[in-house]
């Protein structure tokens, strides 16, 4: 098993009227990009706030590299909350210095690091301007810089891409991958399945305060695969149905510029080679790949499955 930077065991959080987390157990492997997924109100933000020690849990334990999570670890976490902003009337540089010092950096250290980051992001000329004079995109850059300024081992992003323009989303993604490359672990909480697909290697799915799925994304996709394949071939649309045995289910067939694409679900006990063997005598194959479920499909099917259960 991969070493875990953060391990939560039976974490429970109750509010007056409802339980926000019900005995949640999960482990975040070191240097992973860990997607924390789930519909609204599933408990993602509550979990993140507990890790950041903004909220206290009622039951359970969280360990950091094997030791009990304590206030000292706060300086090793960088947190970009979903509800984020800056003091509008404060100057950018001064504010960045303040937030960096709150994260435990000395003033001179913070100053040096901020100058480096500001030059990287090309916002040095805004150092002495007030935040309210900045464009939204630039504010987001500043916000990102102060999240990572203390070079945390664990970065937590809650809905990081909401409100970012596409250019900034790209910069953010590059930076996230770069930081991971330097050894950081990243927890991602989001609804945006496309970015999960693109970035995450581990995921956990929360629904109604409970964890319903966790693991490496590749493994999860494998367990959810349906023995379906995509095939591109040279031939008339619809010809596959006449060629294949009825136990092969043709899900969809489209034709574009003389090239047809079909999605086929294979009967149990058969493999891709069987399909190819069947088709070879009849059509020219241009492409062939396994059809893995998207995270979106897994998400929806899993959540629906649990929602259908009696509470």
């Amino acid at each position: 098993m991969q070493e875990e930077i953060l391990t939560a065991t039976n974490v429970t959080k109750r509010y007056a009227n409802h339980t926000a987390l019900k005995s949640v157990t999960l482990g975040v492997p070191k240097q992973s990009i860990y997607g924390l997924l789930g519909p609204n109100g599933a408990g993602k933000t509550t979990f993140i706030r507990i890790v950041n020690q903004i909220l206290a849990m009622d039951e359970g334990t969280i360990t950091w590299n094997g030791e009990k999570l304590s206030l000292d670890h706060i300086f090793r976490i960088g947190y970009l909350p979903e509800e984020r902003g800056l003091y509008k009337k404060m100057k950018v540089g001064e504010q960045a210095l303040y937030l960096s010092q709150l994260k435990g950096l000395s003033r001179s250290e913070a100053n040096q690091r901020l100058k480096r980051w500001f030059e990287r992001f090309d916002i040095m000329s805004w150092w002495n301007r007030k935040v309210e004079e900045l464009s939204k995109g630039m504010q987001q850059k500043v916000q990102f810089v102060v999240t990572v300024i203390h070079e945390p081992e664990l970065l937590i992003f809650d809905e990081p891409f909401s409100g970012f323009d596409p250019i900034n989303v790209n910069i953010l993604k590059e930076e996230i991958l770069r930081l991971r490359g330097q050894g950081a672990t990243i927890i991602f909480s989001t609804h945006n399945m496309a970015s999960v697909e693109e970035l995450c290697d581990h995921i956990a799915l929360l629904n109604r305060s409970e964890k319903i799925l966790e693991g490496r994304m590749a493994d999860i996709k494998k367990t959810f695969r349906t023995n379906s394949y995509v095939i591109q071939y040279d031939g008339v649309k619809g010809s596959l149905r006449s060629i294949l045995h009825p136990s092969y289910e043709v899900l969809e067939e489209v034709m574009e510029e003389n090239l047809s694409t079909a999605r086929i679900r294979l009967p149990q006990g058969t493999g891709p080679n069987d399909l190819i063997a069947h088709l070879l005598p009849h059509v020219t194959i241009h492409g062939f790949s396994e059809l893995l479920p998207t995270m979106n499909e897994i998400f929806i099917s899993k959540v629906n499955e649990y929602s259908a259960l009696p509470r």
Binding site: N52, I54, I77, Y79, L80, P81, G85, L86, Y87, L102
Partner: peptide, 18 residues
């Protein structure tokens, strides 16, 4: 109220206690 409506409060609360 300013801290709350600026949405900076959670950023700060990740470093200090309320």
């Amino acid at each position: 109220i300013e801290e709350k409506s600026n949405r900076i409060v959670e950023v700060i609360l990740s470093s200090v206690k309320p």
